[in-house]
Structure formats: structure tokens, C-alpha cells
Amino acid sequence: MSKILNKLFRALSNPRQALLYLLKLRISRLIPDKAYLKLKYRIIFGKKLNLNNPQTFNEKLQWLKLYDRNPMYTMLTDKYEVRKYVAEVIGEEHLIPLLGVWERFEEIDFDKLPNEFVLKPTHTSGDIFICKDKSKVDLTELRKIVNKWLKREYYWFHREWPYKNIKPRIIAEKYMVDDSGVELKDYKFMCFNGKPKILFVASNRHLEGGVKIDFYDLDWNLLPFERHYKRSGKVMPKPRSFNKMIEIAEKLSQGIPFVRVDLYEVDGHPYFGELTFYPGAGFEEFTPEEWDYIIGSWLQLPSWKSKNKNNYK
């Protein structure tokens, strides 16, 4: 109770944070998706969400949440089910080896897992447990973490509807590192109707100082903007499998107005990470802001938008 009260007092000292806190409460589920997204957008960006004629990348992501509801997106968002699609389209050699999948924490046989492994839920975003030494894992504490994951109803946070009907499960994957020997950097390709246009590299994710994000064009030129996170201040080495990564991103993004294809590289070999339909849930600011419009201009909404936009409220 004290933790909840502390969060509430902190929120009340900042009106913007107070409003965002209220949107996290269960009662906010009574608000229809369209009204909820309009309200949250205004709170975060301080301006009206234009759904009739969206111009920015963030606006168009909100539009896609409401009106581009391809049932296939649920399977592609599920961290377990998407593996079947990836194996079919680009080959299972690009999948990080799977160690197991379970519906309950009690089903996990830790004696059979290797000393190093990664746990993550199939139905949320950003949740991960990295084990580098199984003998040091506090299973009681880990049970609390995993059970909290399984109870999360991630759709309600940002109204990213593909998460709504994913079956909550836990998967374990092989622990892997890249050439640095320290971490596994994300290479995240932003793809528009099957064409990667730019990418960003996420580094330092689980290290001191927090995640750093650097945007590049496909010629590996560093781009002059940030999106919510700070840059690393250096040019990352271009991955050896970069051309193969572009080919993979093209194949996995075919027929989709926008999707981000996340890849890793280990010993010069690309591995699949995940598909992300709404990066930052469409609520992360660009600095300078003009890049929100530049990247938004690349995202061509489906031609049927004027006919179907009233189908979802």
C-alpha cells in the first residue's frame, strides 16, 4: 500500500504525470480506444491527435492501432507463435534456439536449463530476465517476477490491440552475446510497405547508464536526430551481415504498412528478435521534431482508410 501511495503522491506533484497515472488505473478501461488514444496523445505531446489527416509518424501509428487490424498481427506479435512464421519465411537458422515454453512458472524445470538462459513472456513488451549463472538465481524472487508478467494485460497500457488476444506464456531462449562479448545489440529496421528505410541500434541496454539509441540510414550514415533516448556519442561498427539483415527485413515486412524488424548478429550470423508494429507505442518524441514529419511522410496508410476508419471506436 505504501508503494502505491508514494506513486500517487509523486504523480499529484506533476499534473501531467498525474493524468498518465490515472490512465493506468483499471477504471480507464471503460474509455474506448479512440478516445483513450486521443487523451493520452494530448497529455504526452500537448497537442491534438489528428486522425482524419495524420501527418507525423506518431500520429500514423495511432491511426494504425485503430484501423489496420489484420488478425495476423496477433500471431506476429506473440513471441512464441511468430517463430513459425519466421522459420517459414527466412529459415529456422535465424531463430535464437528455444529452450522451452510454459504456461506457469511451476512448470519450468530449472535443472534441465543450461547455466545461462533468457526468460521472457510471450504477450508483453520489454520484460526480460537474463540469467548468466543459474546457481545465483533466487527462484522465490523470480517466481514473483514471472507471475507478475503472466498477469499483465499489456493491451490496456497503450491500446496496442495485437497484444489483446495473445495467450500468456513464458519462453526460455539460449543466452547469446555478440562480438563485444558483453551484450547483444539490437539492429532495428524500420520498414515501410516491405522496404527498410532506416534503422537504429540499441546498445548498453542492460548496462550502467541505460540504453542508448543511434539511428542510421542504409548506407550506415549516422542520422541527426533522437527519439526519446540519448545517442551513444559514437558510430557503431557496421554488422558483418548487414546486407543479409536488409534482405531479411524486406522479407518479413512484406504486405505491412509499417513494422519494425528487430535483428541481432552473433559471429557474423543474423538472428531474429521480434516484430514491432508500434515502436514506443507511438508516444515517443523526436528531437528535432521535424523528423516526426519526415518519417511520417514515408508511412503510406492503406488506401481503404477513408472507407474503414469508422469500423473501430
Rank of each mutant, 00 (worst) to 15 (best):
R152V: 12
F117A: 09
E160P: 06
L150M: 07
H158M: 10
M176H: 03
L113Y: 06
P114E: 05
V118A: 03
A172Q: 05
Y155Q: 07
K167M: 10
S135D: 11
E173T: 04
I130Q: 08
K112S: 15
K164Y: 01
P121N: 09
G181T: 03
K174R: 14
L184Y: 02
K185M: 10
S125N: 12
L119I: 09
L142G: 08
K148I: 00
E107Q: 15
E160T: 05
T122D: 01
H158A: 13
K112N: 14
G126T: 08
E141F: 11
D179R: 11
V182G: 01
K167W: 00
T140P: 00
S180K: 10
D133E: 14
Y175C: 03
I166T: 00
T140E: 15
R152I: 15
K134I: 04
F129K: 13
V177E: 03
E153H: 13
G126K: 14
N147D: 13
W149K: 04
W156P: 08
R169D: 00
E141R: 15
G126W: 12
N147P: 07
R152Y: 07
Y175W: 10
E116R: 15
V118G: 03
D178Y: 05
V177T: 11
K174E: 12
K134G: 07
S180T: 15
K112C: 08
E107H: 13
E160C: 08
Y187I: 07
V182H: 11
V137D: 09
I128T: 13
P162A: 05
P168H: 06
F129G: 09
